[in-house]
Design a protein around this nucleic acid. Sequence first.
RNA 1: GCUGGUGUGGCGGAAUGGCAGACGCACAGGACUUAAAAUCCUGAGGUGGCAACACCGUGUGGGUUCGACUCCCACCACCAGCACCA
Length: 803
Amino acid sequence: MNFTDIEKKWQDIWEKEKRFEVNNYCDGKKNAYVLIEFPYPSGKGLHTGHVRSYSAMDAVARKKRLEGYNVLFPMGCDAFGLEAERTAIKEKKPPQEIVSRNIAIFKEQLKCVGLSIDWSRAINTCDPEYYKWTQWLFLQFYKHGLAEKRYANVNWCPNCGVLANEEVEDGKCCQCHAEVEQKPKSQWILKITKYAERLNDDLDQTEYMEHIKLGQKHWIGKSEGVQVKFKLVQGGEFEIYTTCIETIYGITFMVLAPEHPLIKQNKDKIKNWIEVENYIKQASKKSEFERAELTKTKTGCKVEGLTCINPVNGKEVPIFIGDFVLVNYGTGAVMAVPSHDQRDFEYAVAHNIPMIQVIEGKDVSKEAFEKKDYLGKGCKLINSEEFSGLTVEEAKVAITKKLVDMGVAKKQVNFRMQDWVFSRQRYWGEPIPMINCPKCGWVPVPEKDLPVKLPEVESYEPTKDGESPLSLISDWVNVKCPCCGSDAKRETDTMPGWAGSSWYFMRYCDPHNDKEFASYDALKAWLPVGLYNGGNEHTNRHLLYARFWNKFLYDIGLSPVNEPFKSRVSQGIVLGANGVKMSKSLGNVVDPRDVIKEYGADSLRIWESFMGDYFSDVNWSDEGVKSANKFISRVVSIKDLLVDGDEISKELSYILNATIKKVSEDIDKIKFNTAISQLMICVNEIYKNKKINKAEYKTLLTLLNPFAPHITEELWVECGYGKDITNATWPVCDESKLIKEEVEIAVQVNSKIVARINIDPTLNQEDILTFVINNENIKNILIEKQIIKEIYVPGRIVNFIVK
RNA sequence: GCUGGUGUGGCGGAAUGGCAGACGCACAGGACUUAAAAUCCUGAGGUGGCAACACCGUGUGGGUUCGACUCCCACCACCAGCACCA
């Protein structure tokens, strides 16, 4: 029988027997939840990169099962989103149809890999049975005051309407190339910033990979600083936020965001209002891209007629507006200290503003002496009245105290993260279940009326007026108010692509529940997810959103855990053979089905495990699959060396136990490449030994099963170990078999290798050193030399430092 | 610019501060074969040498250490992400 038949045979058996379907509780077994991000069913289909991470997590799941766990390893589809909508527009077919077509391809691709997925729990975010609960969850946010309508900017193309960020290229519409501007629009937002502190601090309760924690922290952007009130000479006041209060004596100007309310309020006092107004207009036209443009010079405009007083020394300071100050971060106003902030420095040079150095330690005539360079170095203040001479760290405390005592400042924690704009003016998303009544205002759709289903429409294209295509379906839009029965209108915005994926891992726990989004008991059985694997591109936002939803649900008593994921890892990207990302247009996409047809799923899986470090990017190579195929053939051919025996023999006990240890540890650490390498070493040793007994082969097959599930199960049955491999148990390493009677160590003199000799590693250090010194060779080398130090690294090296 | 990451043979890549290059690919030689493929065995970082061996080798330059791919400082190159964050 060839591998195609074998793999098909076992995949059919697994499906028929429902081998990988799990119950939430299984007597005598502990639960384990292994999760991998569900795919977005794009028209591209899956490529070998997906297979690498899926089969990696499959290996983890399979090993856990063999270790006796009740394992949940689910899969689904994240089906709402822009790409399906675009394809729908292009092909003039409903997105539902596009998505089902793509899902069918995905399923076929996934199935032939032989993953141990519980397909009975499969979910699909665009299924009304699923998004009913996404809508229900939105209503919970609303009812707890965490969802509200607020104005937020959208990318606005005069021809095409509202655009997603990715539809804007170089500040222009990617379709019609018109200039894109920012336009405020009333939208639903979720108040994720209410959770900023906990989303930051609770990372300590998780075991995410360090760079992922850092990514989260940077995105949340917690900073501790001081908020200070500045009085206008002309009457009124405003606040600034700073993390560098120690530089307050260095202030030579202030910069307000162009949109700052103070500017309009003082219109009559501003002498150059025309100039100011023009600047504000220009700033509002700037696209996201232009505002983020890095090389551009800092623009701004002096506000003539407005000045303020620096509260520490009573000095009068000029006021500017500049579009690099953002109205929605901090207080929308900053103090500018050109000597100690490079951005302020450049601004000061451009506008001919004086500078005052207040921290000594660097020449500030060419560039600023910034906090990253002066913090923690013991630098002292100058030009700062009574604070001169203090270190920066002392001054931070002292100046803050003075300002707080004066009643003009308070300590303030700020977050870079902003509230989550949750509205999209698009068709292909979950309708936001709200109704706008002229009498009652915004009223949630009663829970009994959920789901609010997407109506069928003729056209999916965004409208020219910036409203969702749903707004054109009048018999869908017009409803009676659930409160008062008056004529009212549905919200026509839909949710963003992130919505469905923010809680899908919970639905897997209880996927068919029609009373709740998931029962508390089911969630308690599985959460937190033990291992969560996903792409680097999702380690910031998706992970944050999912944590946010869970925390909210935890607070209202619907989730049993404060943190939903115990650990999070992200795999490297499998690049095409040419070293660039696989993409259809470059023609370097490898379809797993093609590889499987030629070499088999087991070979593909082994190769993808072996090709390199799981967390690093790797280039695809066809040659490599061949080598994996060869390795599998070698494992099969071992059958010819089989002899009787129920116990591990003396000849193979070292290598088998070493392999058990290495493979077990490496799977736990997701170091699959070295696990496979160890299995190869083991197989090589078996060939050298020229025989293997049944117990030994059984051990080898068990260790290989997570990586090559089909062939190992086939051999398992063929060798009479049982009717299938579910009766296998993961072997345990006998550490006592790893102790060797003799090992070769290197002997060094002054850290240079002079000899290699065999020693008994069980001896203590003293005996080993004596043994080495008394060796004839070593004696000759050391003759007439004075040993001043002896170093022994167990089992590796002896080093004599001599004079 | 900021953030995160990477840099080791011809190639993919291994190495709790302890014999750099495990394992594999490609390559060479041998066995089997009429022959080829497949398979099995053997070899190999570079330079020099018949050889024993010597010297040089983990992006560059310093440092710590008996000992550095590994730790510290400075720099260079490449990849990915980004929201000018006060």
